[in-house]
Design a protein around this nucleic acid. Structure first.
Lengths: 173, 173
DNA sequence: AACTCTGTACAGTTTCAACTGTACATAATT
DNA sequence: AATTATGTACAGTTGAAACTGTACAGAGTT
């Protein structure tokens, strides 16, 4: 009974990890990073590299690089425990802030960057477009110019949509 | 002068393709599919497999499988031209509907699916949790249970946020 | 019906990222 | 200072996905 229950808990752990990882992958995490994060997230208290390694059945090197990646993304933090030699890591608590909010920021900055770059090309093309004489080239340049406009509008929509979504930046009305 | 301008147009084409592809990759397209779509999108009028192949410098087989993928995602459509043997494809016009809107749907259905699965596990665990006697296992089960709750809430937030974002489903207030 | 053209299935190749084991640098303990 | 423990750099391996060329199936043309 105890053994059976232990398996139950372990299986459920695995199943939950698998499920939640799928969501985190949609946020752009690699499958490996996602599973590592979930492992940390489900564990009560921080973990050492060796514990992670054992929990996931991967090498300690993988854990080291994996944790480093999660740290860079601000998803995991290092924790100090007096008189303890090994490094300890734990998942940051607030899921929404860590994933959704940073995701929104990523989209916004990408969209705004694109708008700048596309508009700059649009201007560059506009300057040149007058010089064209050749019929076919004129047409091609014109098509490209129109598309650039469409693409800018598209990115503006994206930026606007994600702005609405941002909890820190409440809806405009 | 004509030659120089031709290069200019070609270079700009390449640059635009490169930029816009980055955005489409954020929507989950592979780099190859993204570039194929942009090529079709920028081209005036539909294209044949051979034209795409030439434009991208990849094999016709790649184009065939690439286009099939884009068709499945509803990003490209096949076009008929009387008395013309080759298949013709063109990019669908409305970028926002094609990408943003389908992206939102993908997130929503993923989030709702997760909510169901996680809640079902939550219930399963709740039934078992009473039977635990062992102190440590109790604690572990409890931790997992709490996390399941957090994860459900997280996905509910996601679903709610993307619902607001959906242009077909206007904001609740 | 024979022939030609077009798209795709399939098998093999290449490319790229994840992962591992070893070897080393650094820090802690004796 | 010597020894032990810990994290990471690095080089090599593995595995998966993208891509290619060939061979074929099906439609169109003669």
């Amino acid at each position: 009974m105890v053994v059976k229950d232990h398996h139950f808990l372990e299986d459920m752990h695995t199943k939950v990890t698998h499920e939640f990882s799928k969501t985190l992958e949609m946020f752009g995490l690699t499958p490996a990073d996602a599973r590592l994060f979930v492992t940390l997230y489900l564990h009560q208290g921080p973990m050492t590299l060796d514990e992670m390694s054992k929990a996931l059945g991967k090498s300690k090197t993988s854990m080291s690089t994996g944790v480093r990646g999660l740290l860079d993304q601000g998803l995991v933090e290092r924790v100090w425990k007096k008189g303890f030699r090994k490094d300890l890591y734990q998942a940051n608590e607030n899921l929404y802030r860590n994933f959704m909010s940073s995701y929104i920021k990523k989209w916004q900055s990408a969209a705004n960057g694109q708008i700048n770059r596309l508009e700059s090309m649009e201007g560059e093309l506009k300057d040149r477009i007058k010089e064209y004489v050749n019929q076919e080239e004129m047409q091609q340049a014109d098509q490209l110019y129109r598309r650039l406009g469409d693409m800018v509008r598209f990115h503006e929509w994206i930026a606007g949509a994600f702005k609405e979504l941002d909890p820190n930046e409440p809806p405009s009305d």
